[in-house]
Each structure stands twice: as C-alpha cells, then as structure tokens.
Nucleic acid binder design. Sequence first.
DNA 1: CTCAGTGTTCAGTG
DNA 2: TCACTGAACACTGA
Length: 267
Amino acid sequence: MPELPEVETFRRSIEKVMKKKKIVKVIAKDEPVVFDETPAKKFVKQMTGATVTGSERRGKYFWLKLDRKPWPIFHLGMTGSFEIYTAKTLPKVKPRSLRAEFEMSDGTYVWFKDPRKFGRVRVANDPLTEGAVSRLGYDPLYNFPTAKALFEILNARKAPIKALLLDQSIFAGVGNWIADEVLFQSGLSPFRAARSLTMNDVKNLRSSILKIVKKAVSVSADSEKFPKSWLFHHRWGKGKNAMVAGHKIQFVTVGGRTSAWVPELQS
DNA sequence: CTCAGTGTTCAGTG
DNA sequence: TCACTGAACACTGA
C-alpha cells in the first residue's frame, strides 16, 4: 500500500497517539533484514524512555522526533503498515509479521508490521541530511518545482517518463500506482522519452501529480474515496478485460514495473 | 508449482 | 562518472 499518501496517513495517525507521550517499552524482533543498520537490541535501548515531540515525512520515509537523539526512521517497503491498540484491544497473539511494538505512557500500543520485510527501521540524528532521506528529490507536499524547472530536468533525460516518475531522487513519494494515474490523467504514454515532453506536457504532468497526491491525502489514502474517474479503480483486475472510460486498459512493463495504461487516451 | 507484486539497491553496460 | 536497465531481495497469495 505505501506510496506518499499512505505513508502520510500513517504518519498522522501515529503522531496523534504518540505525541507528548513517553515510550515506556519497545519490543523489536531480532531481524537484521529489517533493522539493517542498527541492530534491534540497540534500537530498543535508544527508543526506551524517550518522549515523542512530533513527526515528519519526506517521500515514502517518515520519522518520529524525540526529546533526545537519535530518532527512528521508517520505510514501509511494499507491505508495511502500522496498527494502533489500547491494552484492551491489543491482540493476545502477536502476528508473524510484527517487527516492532511501542508501548506508550498512556497505555497506547503501536505496531509496525511488514510481512514481506522490504520495510526498514533505521535511526538518525538529523534525518533530512543523512542516508536515503537526504538523497530524495522533490516531495509534492513540501518543495515541488515549477513547471519550468521540471521541464529542464526532464528535458535532459531520455529514459521513459514512467521510469523517471518512479525515480525517488526526482519525484519523492511517487510509486507505481500514482505514476500510472498521473500519466493517465495527463494523457501521456508511459513510453514517452522524458526529453520529448513539451512544456505543455510538463505542465499537465506537474498539475496531475499535485492533484492526485493532495486528493489521496485528503481522503486519508482511502481508495474507496478516490474519484470514480481514476484509473486506480480499474487497474487491479489485470489480465481480464479491464476497462476505463469505455476503453481497454493495457498492461506493459516499463521502467522495470508493470504499467497500466490506455493507448487510446495516452500518447 | 510458478509467478507477480503499491519498493529500493546494486551490478553490469555503454 | 553518469544514465540507464535488469536482477535480487523476502514472502504471500492467486
């Protein structure tokens, strides 16, 4: 699930229950793949006893701000998610996919689950200037470039636009479904070489990204509340006769990922 | 049994 | 060095 809108939605709900509370207990599964930089045991020591003062997100990464360093950074990979419980609602049996549990001073529990283990838990003293977060490009909700600046960037690249939309060092937070939705709504083929886009194309592309991301965030990434006209609702029945707006959806591989698009409406 | 998947990183190539 | 491509990673469900 997690592209920018999903991650932002998790961040908001986590902040709501953790802010101004102390982390009284942490359980982190000894899982070197998930805790790939800081061992789970060390992570537990670093987090226990700290008070959460806020949170922040860039692209698909988000982190908690604590009253002391370092701060924890989360990436949800393909299948990561968070769940919030009280002592009463906390499941007795911990699922296999549970990677970390935070118990707060008011009795709230926060679970980080990730069955597929592509998610990562790391720490940093200053997330914006360290590691993967520092290498991110423009985040649609923070520092999106003007159409002119974007045109300059894309004009210098010959890769297909679909591949560049997925490039986190340009479009931080855009993932596979957002990229396809953006191309659908701006009428562009995923195969178009970035340098072939006109200024008008880039303007459409840019406004589509902003519109789609903001809309998805405004409905808390609840896809049932996405506008009916979006490709999103029709792309998952892959292989069958998936249709949108009376046209057949085609599935192809571009930029190493499956792309859903409508040749009759996108060029 | 095989394959694809809402992601990122790394090796190989030009 | 850089831009680009394809494979690998780990696991589940169709």
